[in-house]
């Protein structure tokens, strides 16, 4: 029974220009009291990526994040993944968070398929024993056979995606975070991948999904959050939110 609570979460992004990125230029500015290099360009612009966001998600919630580009969908996912710690406000999780923001994360070209299963499994928070138990099942799903002993650089891009998808979806998440659902390989494999993907979602207690495809969100989610310029514009059941969108 996982749950997530956000209490007035704000994320401010500093946007640095070349000068404020340079220690040398900062040093010149300090030592000369701003007499040199005083072109105001050292000032740093702050962008409010999330503004006072509060909501509560409970077991059974499948939440779609919708909004235009730059509305804060990815930032919100990264805050939920604990990658960005909010500049203000608080978050509380009951349950383990599993972010699947980039399916290809940690896939190494020089390592074999099996070695990649181990590394990716460890990154997903599995223990070595758990990975060993799952390896046969993952191998069967990817249909890569003997290729799994070969370096990943010998794979086609479709095969690489199959491997990455196979490992990434082998977990049993409590709170699952997804950034755009990926398409995988040929048509026959797509059917299989979709089945596995749906199983993954069914197993999860809470799912948060960001997508530009309204169809995907309508199919998977029962709730939605409409973001606009970093603010929650609307949060509610899927039908009500789309009525506002």
């Amino acid at each position: 029974m996982a749950s997530v609570t956000l209490d007035s979460v704000t994320v401010d992004f500093p946007i640095y220009n070349v000068n404020s990125r340079s220690l040398k230029k900062q040093f010149i500015r300090l030592t000369t009291g701003g007499a040199l290099n005083n072109d105001e360009s050292h000032k740093c612009v702050v962008v409010k990526a999330l503004d006072n966001v509060s909501f509560h998600l409970e077991h059974g919630d499948r939440v779609g994040l919708i909004g235009h580009n730059g509305a804060g969908k990815s930032t919100l996912l990264r805050v939920l993944a604990q990658i960005y710690e909010p500049t203000a406000g608080r978050i509380h999780f009951d349950g383990k968070v599993s972010p699947l923001l980039d399916v290809m994360l940690g896939i190494n070209q020089e390592s074999s398929g099996y070695e990649n299963i181990i590394l990716r499994g460890l990154l997903l928070g599995l223990t070595r024993d758990e990975i060993m138990q799952k390896t046969a099942e993952i191998a069967a799903f990817t249909e890569l056979g003997d290729y799994l002993s070969m370096p990943v650089r010998t794979y086609s891009s479709g095969m690489q995606l199959r491997l990455a998808f196979g490992v990434a979806t082998s977990i049993s998440p409590e709170i699952l975070l997804l950034d755009e659902v990926v398409g995988t390989g040929d048509a026959a494999f797509m059917v299989k991948a979709e089945k596995r993907f749906n199983e993954l979602i069914e197993q999860s207690s809470v799912v948060v999904l960001a997508s530009h495809s309204n169809d995907v969100i309508k199919r998977i989610c029962n709730k939605a959050i409409l973001l606009e310029a970093g603010k929650v514009k609307y949060f509610g059941t899927i039908e009500k939110v789309f009525a506002h969108y």
């Binding site: 993944a81 972010p99 923001l101 980039d102 994360l105 990154l123």
Partner: peptide, 9 residues
């Protein structure tokens, strides 16, 4: 960067 931005470690 790619790790730090995609996963909490």
């Amino acid at each position: 960067e790619h790790f730090l931005k995609q996963i909490k470690l």
